[in-house]
Write a protein that binds this DNA or RNA. Sequence first.
RNA 1: GGCGACAUGGCCAAGUGGUAAGGCAAGGGUCUGCAAAACCCUCAUCAUGGGUUCGAAUCCCAUUGUCGCCUCCA
Length: 470
Amino acid sequence: MTLRIYNTLTRTKDPFTTIEPGKVRLYVCGPTVYAEAHIGHAMSALVFDIVRRYLEWSGYEVNYVMNYTDVDDKIISKANQLGEDPFALAQRYIDDYAQNLADLNVKPATLNPRATQEMDCIQNMIARMLEQNRAYAVDGDVYYRVAADKNYGQLSGRKLEDMNAGSRVQVDDRKENPMDFALWKSAKPGEPAWDSPWGKGRPGWHIECSAMNYHHLGEQIDIHGGGNDLIFPHHENEIAQTEAITNKQFATFWMHNGMLTLKNEKMSKSLGNIISIKEFLSQHPADVMRLLVLSGSYRGPLVYGEDVLNQAEQVLKRLLGAKKPADPDAQGLSADRDQHLKDTAAKTASAFKEAMDDDFNTSGALAAIFELVKAINQARSDGATSAQLAHPISVFNEFTGVLGLKLEEPSSAGAESDANAFIDLLVKLRSDLRAEKNWALSDKVRDGLKSLGVVIEDHKDGSSWSWERN
RNA sequence: GGCGACAUGGCCAAGUGGUAAGGCAAGGGUCUGCAAAACCCUCAUCAUGGGUUCGAAUCCCAUUGUCGCCUCCA
């Protein structure tokens, strides 16, 4: 069984191949840094983190490049609004974004290039397009000549004549074709600008990604990823620019994640329904966000809401439960029950791989993991020893790790964790009360701790407690 | 107006020709002093209408509905 990936370019699941054997060149469009990242960004980052982790687990060496677009109209206008230097503002949000990713347990990219550090490459590419008449300069601006590109629209499946450019935005009449897009924009006074053969200015929106790809990964890459809202025009234009210069197929695979929506509406500033990553993580563990993504197809929309959130919380509890230790007094499983457990572990391992190989079918992979969870729980309640549980639990850890789940026991942060010793004391006292069959008082202790977020579980040989996840 | 995606039980969600994975919730049971956790059992014929086929959730056509893109967007 080999990995198959849904390719936006071909609209089918194609067998995965790489340009260099065993190595993957993966580029994912990162954010334009002008505001706090929201959980939609988180979804995209998590999707490609999972892709990356699975490819690495499958034995590939992954060169993962995720860019920051750090010069752009929105950054400039936000900076003006705040009276802040646009570069300082961009840096602030880059640091912020990197921290968000770390908090989400997203593995750092191999490289995080930035648009502002690629000016030579950007200008070289524009110059070559001009030389080949694939672009034209007007009053310090440079535009890509769409009409000269017979493949334009290959990714988004559009034809030039079908698109009604300007229906919602004023068309610049200096353009030869309304669909022509800017490679270089002349600077207005007070804007950040770089010298260029066409006058002072800055790059257009799409060229920076073409340049960063070209510079850091080469003329051709294996996978290009991003949100499906980038298919047109951003990715279409990236292809146009790069292929205009190389005359080679730019990316073999184009992967696009679906949008996270709130009550069937896309998150947007105008609707005022943005939930930032920071805000989310202040209320939920990172694993919950990841489980939200894992529970469905990465290509489809993810409808965010109270109900799915609660379900993800429950799922996380169940996963955590699988890691509970064996009963110290366990009698041990019979040889054939033990063998059965091993067989189940092997079976779920192949089911996991089969699901993931089918275009990263994470909900199928999760189902395989749950089969293992059930087997582990069954074995534990049938008296498996910790030695007997060790192997299936290590398989469980391996696969949840491939999906990027941390599965840490919840703990109460900061000063509250100093309470642990006191809670231990209360729980011990309660055990004494139970030994005396003083149910009224022992239940009072349990209820009291429960209301403080501490859950007690009684076992044959004593009681354990844990912080309630919230 | 153009392009595209999707529609599976109360909820989330796999499944592209042979009679529906998994999870959450719910109900019943075991365990427990009572709980909690865990375990066992129960719980769908796949938007609608046609068609192809021995046989379709899975292929084709139509209808309805939802969403995305065509402007900045992960």
